[in-house]
Design a protein around this nucleic acid. Structure first.
Lengths: 195, 195
DNA sequence: AACAAGCGTACGCTATAACGTACGGACGTA
DNA sequence: TACGTCCGTACGTTATAGCGTACGCTTGTT
């Protein structure tokens, strides 16, 4: 009999939960409505049960199926420590320093980054192409200093504490017209529709 | 072909997510490695896929299977309306002050808020229901002080500059174990679109 | 109007899930 | 030692998952 491999090895988890509840295969079969031989095959990884059966097994273990699955999903909390930030893209001859604060997870819904602009520095130029995919939105919070956002042919002055939200797929850049460093936190949300 | 009834009608959910992503059955088939006719049967409730196939379908929709299942688990999520957050003080005998920095625009993709926790204060308690809709994710940046995140039965210690990302639809809260105020910026990404 | 492309689903076939029965081993009791 | 009970798993059978092919419908283009 071949062992089926699938990303979430639910079988050992079911067995350990069953043992913790001091149940035999026949006990759990009675509670869940799934046959004992079937439970044995699932626990040993010999077969992949259907969702309908898996829900019954979870119910026999007094869990919802999503809870049962989550027990084997490690690492869904991702912490990026202060010293582990990734450097972002910065403009040429820059004065623009960027750090990405969120982890590089696949399917990450929003990216948080921190930007420092020296006096006179800019995140890009008027002719730069948009750096984000269609449909994405950006929110930027000015933590200190002053910045000007140029987008869609308009210039917007922002002071510390101001928060701006705009379509990130339009050409845009920030610049620091002041004499001190400006610090920005930027949140970019993935576009609504992606192909 | 008889329609199979099972407790979690995942089929319509898959179809609405697929539509929201503007994918055809053949598109999703390519992304997930599950055949288009099979996807059609699953969406129409004609068959219960195995866990192995269900995980591949979820992956094609850029979700973990537990996330996909949670979307249809009614009664597990209580949503706190924006108006309640905007009052600025939440939690009993609080010491927790919150400000929402992003505008209340319809269809807002990510919400940015700032939280101040006094020494010993907490954003909620262990028994609180989850505050965000299924599928949403949260990123929190500790700007100053220290906080502990409790989620899914685990506690994570965070220092100034640390950034944590997690499933916001699971019950969670932050607390300040230190002797000084802690300041958090939180980004919550909109959950998946629902019909 | 004719044609092509894309779509969702019907159908037939194969592989496997899921069950019921029965086996062998371990353990407890007389 | 012999017997009964409980356990997990092997095996054969049936039901169904899962695939590939092809159909009919809709839409867009020429």
């Amino acid at each position: 009999m071949v062992t089926i491999e699938h990303p979430n090895p639910i079988g050992p988890r079911i067995r350990s939960l069953r043992d913790a509840m001091a149940l035999s295969l026949r006990d759990l079969a009675q509670r869940s409505g799934v046959s004992a031989p079937m439970l044995s095959q699932v626990e040993r990884g010999e077969t992949s049960p259907t969702l309908a059966v898996a829900e019954r097994i979870a119910s026999g273990l007094e869990l919802r199926l999503s809870q049962l699955l989550r027990l084997d999903e490690g690492g869904q909390v991702a912490i990026v420590r202060a010293g582990e930030r990734r450097s972002g893209t910065t403009g040429p001859a820059s004065g623009h320093r960027a750090e990405i604060l969120t982890p590089p997870l696949p399917g990450q819904r929003a990216e948080l980054s921190r930007h420092v602009l020296s006096a006179g520095a800019s995140t890009g130029g008027p002719g730069d192409p948009p750096m984000h995919e269609p449909g994405s939105r950006e929110t930027a919070l000015v933590q200190s200093g002053r910045v000007a956002l140029s987008i869609d042919g308009e210039r917007h002055e922002l002071a510390a504490g101001d928060c701006v939200t705009f379509d990130a797929d339009l050409p845009h850049h920030f610049e620091n017209p002041g004499s001190d460093d400006a610090i920005l936190l930027a949140v970019v949300s993935a576009g609504l529709r992606r192909s």
